[in-house]
């Protein structure tokens, strides 16, 4: 629970971001109307407050992380090797003491699933207008479902025919979903979508 390197890292990112925000705000042009505050006043005040609030959070979360790492390192030593990960690589060894062998691979799979969905979403946004709605949405749904299916490991142990059948099912689902949403949005709510 506590041994998630992402927690202190996120606090650190907040510190850096708030400092950057402060500097950027101080470069705003200073237009003063009688009695008014400058446009930079609020952004600077907010950045400063975030910075002040983030410092104790960073200290507390780092302490907890160190403490948790210490306790789990004394019980299951080898797990502490992959703790240098990014904030998106979480819960690697979170519940390590209970189920030591299963947790790391499952944590990695979870992270992979997360990154996969983000990446496919990003690709969807990029392709949305060039490919048009129906093609891009069908591809997106298909990629999402097949990707999660493969990363989840459900395809293992299936025969080739069964796998093909599954994929065909997913393709039909993706096409039907894309068409259904298209009809609902363009006909019922009259919201135009790119072709």
């Amino acid at each position: 629970m506590a041994q998630d390197i992402g927690k202190p890292v996120f606090d650190l990112i907040l510190l850096v971001a708030s400092a950057t925000g402060f500097v950027m705000a101080s470069q705003l042009p200073d237009v003063v109307v009688l009695g008014d505050l400058s446009p930079a006043f609020f952004p600077q005040l907010i950045s400063a407050l975030v910075f002040i609030c983030a410092v104790p959070c960073l200290i507390r979360d780092t302490r907890q992380w160190l403490a948790a790492r210490h306790t789990s390192a004394s019980t299951t030593a080898p797990l502490s090797t992959d703790t240098s990960a990014s904030p998106s690589a979480p819960q690697k060894a979170s519940s390590a003491p209970q189920e030591a062998p299963a947790t790391p691979s499952r944590g990695r799979r979870n992270t992979l699933q997360w990154l996969f969905v983000v990446a496919v979403s990003l690709a969807y946004i990029v392709m949305f207008e060039p490919l048009g709605y129906v093609i891009s949405t069908t591809l997106f749904c298909l990629a999402c479902v097949i990707g999660l299916w493969c990363i989840g490991g459900s395809h293992k142990g299936m025969t080739g025919a069964a796998m093909l059948k599954n994929i065909a099912g997913y393709a039909v689902y993706a096409l039907v979903l894309a068409m259904a949403i298209y009809i609902v949005f363009t006909r019922v709510f009259q919201i135009p979508l790119p072709n």
Binding site: V117, S121, Y124, I125, F128, Y133, T137, F140, C141, C144, V145, L148, W149, G152, Y173, A174, L177, A178, I181, F185, F189, I191, P192, L193
Partner: peptide
């Protein structure tokens, strides 16, 4: 996994459609 992708599509279309 099907539900997840359907909701994502709905989010994207909703925001784009406006």
């Amino acid at each position: 996994k099907q539900l997840l992708s359907a909701i994502l599509v709905f989010c994207f279309i909703g925001v784009y459609g406006v």
